[in-house]
Computed example of a mutant assay.
Amino acid sequence: MNPARMHDFDGMVGQIYDAAVEPGRWRQVLETLSDFLEGAATKLTFQNARTLHSEANSVRMPPEADLSLRSTTTRPMCSCRASPG
């Protein structure tokens, strides 16, 4: 990775950590990620392992493509479980 691209990557990682603390920043993180990956759309979905409620953030995604992936309570997205303490 060239130095300029590495600098962009480091900045993006910093934005991810900031958004983990301030969820209102996820939209900007997704914009930055989409630019970094030279992509048209980016989506990030979180799911509560206990309640199975999911919440998604997306950018540059056509509304019709985003409809089936809105916030829902559904089956687990993966079978991952955090190990106890």
Rank of each mutant, 00 (worst) to 15 (best):
A19M: 01
S83I: 12
N2Y: 09
A65W: 01
R27F: 00
E22V: 07
R25V: 04
R5K: 14
T51H: 05
A4S: 15
G14V: 00
G11R: 14
M12Y: 02
R81D: 03
G85W: 04
M12R: 06
R27W: 00
D10H: 15
F9Y: 09
T72S: 10
A82S: 11
M12D: 01
G39S: 12
F36T: 12
Q28G: 11
P23S: 12
R50W: 02
D8M: 12
P84I: 08
H53E: 11
E64V: 04
V21I: 11
E64P: 02
M77W: 07
K43T: 06
Q28M: 04
P76V: 02
M77L: 15
E31D: 07
A56D: 01
T42E: 09
E38T: 09
H7D: 14
V13R: 10
S71M: 08
L67H: 08
A20Q: 10
M61W: 01
G24K: 10
F9W: 06
R75L: 07
D18M: 04
D35V: 07
Q28I: 02
T51E: 07
F36R: 10
E31R: 10
A49V: 05
N48M: 05
P76T: 04
M12E: 02
L69E: 03
S79A: 11
T45E: 02
G24Q: 10
A41D: 15
G24N: 13
H7G: 09
A82Y: 04
D10F: 13
M77E: 13
M6Q: 15
E64R: 15
A20H: 03
R70Y: 01
P23F: 01
L37Q: 09
R70E: 04
R75W: 00
V13L: 12
V13D: 05
S83K: 14
D35I: 05
R50N: 07
G85V: 07
S71A: 13
H7M: 13
F36I: 09
N48Q: 09
L67F: 01
A49S: 14
S71L: 05
N57W: 05
T45Q: 07
A56T: 14
M77D: 13
R27G: 14
E38R: 06
R60N: 10
D66H: 06
S79G: 08
T42N: 08
A4C: 08
A65T: 09
L33I: 02
D18H: 03
S34K: 03
S71G: 08
M12N: 04
K43I: 05
A20F: 00
A19I: 00
N2K: 15
W26R: 10
V59W: 00
T42P: 00
A65F: 02
G14R: 14
D10A: 13
I16A: 13
D35K: 13
E31G: 06
D66M: 09
L30I: 00
G14S: 11
P62V: 12
D10G: 09
L37M: 12
E22K: 10
E22R: 10
V59G: 02
D35R: 14
P84C: 10
F36A: 12
H7N: 15
F36P: 01
V13M: 11
A49E: 14
S79W: 02
C80R: 09
L33W: 01
M1S: 13
G85D: 10
F36H: 10
S83N: 12
S71R: 10
T32E: 03
P84R: 12
R60K: 03
W26T: 06
V13G: 05
A40M: 08
